[in-house]
Amino acid sequence: MLKPGKTTLFRSLALLAVAMPAAAAAQITDDGLLHEAVGAPDNWHLSGSVRARYEAIDGQFREEAVNRDRVLALRTTLLAEYDAGPVRLGAEFHDACAYLQRRGSSVGTDVVNALEFSQYYAQGDLGEALGSGSTSYLKAGRMTMQLGSERLVARQGFRTSVTSFTGLRLTREGEDGREFVAFWTLPAVRLPTGTTAIRRNRPQWDRENTDL
């Protein structure tokens, strides 16, 4: 059994003290208790969430993994967005860690992604540049996305780690409620990938490459 280190526990508890609980599938977008607690001005949007989940499996179906396993998965997120009028600047930090799993566990980067920025972006308001009565904006940087049925592009709610994309996204919203979205992005590759590093919740910055 792997026991969490003091540094990691302190990190999680410190974030827990300032973040508000949220549903697993909730998007981190609206102002909430954190925004009110720090007395943030109206042009700032602050929110966060903390989730703890215990999972166990008996009769492992993965050949190379231990037959019986368990994990305590913790996820903490904090979002800050500054509205400067035609431009918005935002950043979201998340800490996804796992504890109590056995050696040979199947826990991977879908659960562990410690001390990472899932979003940092600039968003520009284009107004009616793409048609009268429409509202358009362009977002650039690292971001999370949810499109359509979310089968291909989504911000997963059940999984502990977060899927991010780096690039450009153009959105046009028409008067009839229809929305047009165009994007060019590189999926962020979650790191680390080594078994030992994952078991120890070792931080390593995610990165993109042109292969995806």
Results as ranks from 00 to 15, higher is better:
His45Leu: 11
Val153Pro: 07
Val181Asn: 07
Leu89Trp: 08
Ile57Tyr: 14
Thr109Phe: 08
Gly90Asp: 02
Glu92Arg: 13
Gly177Leu: 05
Phe93Ile: 02
Thr8Tyr: 07
Leu78Lys: 05
Leu152Met: 11
Trp205Asp: 02
Met20Val: 10
Gly85Asn: 09
Ser132Gln: 15
Gly48Glu: 08
Thr7Leu: 14
Ala129Gln: 10
Asn43His: 15
Glu150Phe: 05
Ser118Thr: 11
Leu33Trp: 15
Thr210Ile: 15
Phe117Met: 07
Leu191Ile: 06
Leu100Arg: 09
Gly148Cys: 05
Ser106Glu: 09
Ser49Thr: 13
Thr185Arg: 00
Gly108Pro: 00
Pro21Arg: 08
Gly48Cys: 02
Thr29Gly: 00
Leu9His: 06
Lys6Val: 07
Asp95Pro: 05
Ala17Ile: 09
Val18Trp: 01
His35Lys: 11
Gln27Gly: 13
Val87Met: 13
Asn201Trp: 00
Ser118Ala: 11
Phe183Trp: 12
Glu36Leu: 08
Pro41Gly: 07
Ser136Ala: 15
Leu74Asp: 02
Leu9Trp: 02
Thr29Lys: 12
Leu13Val: 02
Ser49Ala: 14
Glu63Gly: 04
Ala40Ile: 07
His94Met: 15
Ala14Ile: 01
Cys97Leu: 09
Ala37Pro: 04
Asp206Glu: 13
Leu138Cys: 06
Gly104Asn: 09
Pro41Val: 00
Gly131Ala: 01
Thr76Cys: 01
Pro187Ile: 06
Arg142Lys: 04
Leu191Phe: 07
Val189Cys: 09
Arg202Lys: 12
Arg151Cys: 07
Gln123Pro: 03
Gln60Gly: 13
Met145Thr: 02
Leu46Gln: 01
Gln60His: 12
Pro187Ala: 05
